[in-house]
Design a protein around this nucleic acid. Sequence first.
RNA 1: GCGAGGGUUGCUGAGCCUGGCCAAAGGCGCCGGACUUAAGAUCCGGUCCCGCAGGGGUCCGUGGGUUCGAAUCCCACCCCUCGCACCA
Length: 925
Amino acid sequence: MSRFDTHTTEDEYCKKWEHSFEADPIVSEKFYLTVAYPYPSGAMHVGHGRTYIVPDVIARFWRMKGRQVLYPMAFHVTGTPVIGISRRISQGDEKTIRLYRDLYKVPEETLNRFVEPREIVRYFSQEYERVMRHCGLSIDWRRRFTTVDPQYSKFIEWQYIHLHEGNHVIRGAHPVKYCPQCDNPVGDHDLLEGDKADIIKFVLVMFSWGDYKLPCATLRPETTYGVTNLWVNPDITYVKVTVDGQKWILSREAADKIGLQDHDVVVEGDMSGEELIGVTVSHPFSGDVPVLPATFVDPDMATGIVMSVPAHAPFDYIALRDLQAQGLHAGIVPVPLITVEGYGEMPAKDAVERAGVQNQNDPAMDVLTQEVYNAEFSRGRMLPKYGGKPVREARDEVSAIMVERYGSAVMYDFDSRSVVCRCGSRVFVRILHDQWFLQYSDPEWKAQIHKQLDGITLVPPEVRAEFDRTIDWLKDWACTRRIGLGTKLPWDKEWLVEPLSDSTIYMAYYTIAHKLKQIDPARLTPDVFDYIFRGTGTPSSLPQEQLDDLRNEFLYWYPYDYRFSAKDLISNHLTFQLFHHAALFPENLQPEGMVIFGMGLLDGAKMSSSKGNVFLLEDALDEFGADTVRMFLVGSAEPWQDFDWRKEFVISTRKQIDRFYTTVSEGRVTEGTYPIDRWLISRLQKRIAATNEALASFQTRQALQEAYFGIEADLKWYRRRLPAEIRGSAALREISSTWIRLLAPFIPFTSETLWAEIGGSGDVAFAAFPEPDAQSIDEETELAEELLSRTVEDIESIMKLIQIEPTGITLFIAPSWKWDIFTTIAHSEDKKQVIRDIMKDEAMKTRGKAATDAAKQTTTLIHRFPPQLVSQLAGSMRDEMAVFQEAKEFLEREFAVPVTIVPAGESNHPKAAAALPFKPAIVIE
RNA sequence: GCGAGGGUUGCUGAGCCUGGCCAAAGGCGCCGGACUUAAGAUCCGGUCCCGCAGGGGUCCGUGGGUUCGAAUCCCACCCCUCGCACCA
């Protein structure tokens, strides 16, 4: 057979389609869909391919349905990733160079230019467009932009001016992970180690020792009442420092850390831990307590001085026990202050004894600490003399009092050691000042978004809970950065708008992007955007005519119909954009719907560029052809499900396209009409309806099941039912036109080629998508074929069992009184009572046992049939004799023996009595 | 830990909301056959177990429950995936 090779036609159509999908406002109804734009820092893999191909299938579908469809694309280049990549390349980092040179196949001379970060995004955005065109994406490329274009920056300025005015942007301090060498905050992806580390907030409980304060960092300030001593490590060096004018003693490491956290720190001198041992310190809550030695004290954990609460902290308990075992400090008695169910007076003691821990170096200590901590926090109560409140309440109260009245400060540190920047330097917690925040914590704003979400279509609907939860969970978002690419904050030029915060309403920008390109950015003043997006004011920097044109185009496309994105963006981008839309646009221009994608797997493992576990989209296109890649990516799973790129499935997809091509090509020359045509055409209408329905609800896989596999299965039965030696028919030819158009959104290259071959007019991309024709639906014929195919199946299964060489087949057709029974049972509500009712009938009574048997068998039969079939059958009695008479020749050909059709009532054959409605008795001899 | 989603027959993946159409679709793989000098491709048939008559048995993460009847509803448990923030 002829294999259809899409490669040869792909270039031709890509060229032809260069401007085909540029969409301008016209009178027709619009359909505007957008996808999260890519950050072009590397080559596309097949996962990216699906992200853009699924919307393309939807875009092509609605275009064929007569909508004016806008599918735009742009590039997000804001932020720091390319800066890091560029630096690593210029430093000659082998791993990065190998990734770009070998995996992404960047030419050597281009790679050399990557020392300039913008070159990276410039190169890859060109590549993205080239490969996207190769995929046949029906994008309006005139509107392409990047987020550092000067016009776009003007747009972001407008956005932030309004957010600021609307009190959605506020200023505050914020603890961040910070690299002193890079002099910049670092995100988790910038870390070599410790990307799971959390920032923990400690309260420093200030114990006095003469002029000095000894700050003890704690998560449990409420236990200060129970402090019996402090722990200091005798083997380490502490420092005396002045902190904001106050004299402190703490570990050297801690002094460095505190210096980054809003405190003025001057080191005065060293002091060994040894020197502190034995001194007496005091705090209003605990009174005078001694400082004792403990080697478990880590100078790099918070302040390096620990307050000891042996009744409630297993570490403290066991350290004290160890000392007392040596006969030291026998006078110290743990002070209980919290009661918790399941433990005695001293939970720490109970826990240690129950676990049989020997000494403070036992690894089980961490677990015990956590256990006691959790129990006391969730179920514990302070003793009456300490207020009697639940621990979780007391903790916050004591914490506040400590800070207000007892000189406590707050200190941040990580919950785990070794947090290391990619540059190799250690990372610390730093308090950033003057940081700008988007105030997502604002309850009013949240309430507004909850309400708005109710009106938004979500696909699949299960994600709604996650959106609602995200809205509740969002806290203020630091929306500015010191470094990276991006737009300067209009009222504070020291800051750049952070990448996730400058990409929330660009869907509105697309609507006029191509026109803004022609305009001098200096003229894009905030009042111009006010006019375009809000219809207010009288800007002078642009002619009125131009302003109206821009406003009209915006209003034509907006609001967008659907936004597509992967599910990991629910917790940030997709929710952010709702907040921003609500703050900036009127109610009638708010988002209408979102479609959430699943993730991509490669041979069952998660696809990930950083791990090198990717299949490049371009390689896939070269190896299998664009249509195969498209059909596989949208057909192997529904968009919201995870998909798995497996070569063997991709190959079989290519075979399916070949088969489609062959069938349609062969169908071009066939002639003649046959009775079974009616059935095929009728079935086709249902396939058309189902395909329309599936695509309208974004079920690309389901749509392909109907439009491809469904039709293929129908054709199989159809060919079987054609007269012997007949290979095709006029109906087959007619179906081709419909079938090509049904598949055009999925496999545009093949469809376009076939469309031209069968003489279709214009591009199939703009041809009418098939609509079901109710006139062509013939339920009678479909039922008759259903009866026939069920009977054929029965005959086949019997033949397989009996293993004899048959000489003839006899079919006994159920008599009309059995149909009466069938109808009665089908209509009855109470399946138990119905038999009695049937037997009341005089005519039935005379049939006696035959009638009750038939009723029982019919009941079973009805349970086995699909309910829809039952109601159809009950609606009108079939002329089964006629169906089988017509199909006699077919049956004889199928089974190669003579077939006799007999009304069951006219035969004495014992089997004849077994005939049931829609299930003739079969005798094979 | 918190939040969301999920566990189906060799694989993949429908079905579950709206309980009887379910031994459970489609695809892949595998087996057999046709075609062919042959391979590939293509086409046809089979693919839980038993049965020489269209039937029966067991099955949908585990254990209970509701019901005449459960893959589908309820409860508990086990396991998996994703998100948890200044990052695209």
